[in-house]
């Protein structure tokens, strides 16, 4: 039971993290004509944030608790 609740809370956290990462104002910090490793910053940022959120969800769901 606790496992379920914790996993659920982690998913909600992933949702909130995603909401913050994917939107203004955090997004605007990376929204500038710079490149990182030859890839436009905002492009790299969105994909990295996206992977992070998916990873967080996978961890929340599949991860061992305790």
């Amino acid at each position: 039971m606790h496992r379920r609740i914790l996993a659920g809370d982690r998913l909600i956290a992933a949702f909130l993290v995603g909401c913050v990462l994917f939107n203004y104002p955090l997004l605007s910090l990376f929204d500038r004509p710079t490149e990182i490793f030859g890839i436009p910053l905002v492009y790299a940022y969105v994909f990295c944030a996206w992977i992070a959120v998916i990873g967080l969800m996978a961890w929340a769901i599949e991860g061992r608790i305790r």
Partner: peptide, 19 residues
């Protein structure tokens, strides 16, 4: 990158999909 938000939304929703 204006094509992307249409896929970010579902990602967020799936986090709540559990509920």
């Amino acid at each position: 990158i204006g094509f992307l938000p249409v896929y970010l939304g579902p990602t967020l929703v799936m986090a709540l999909g559990w509920f």
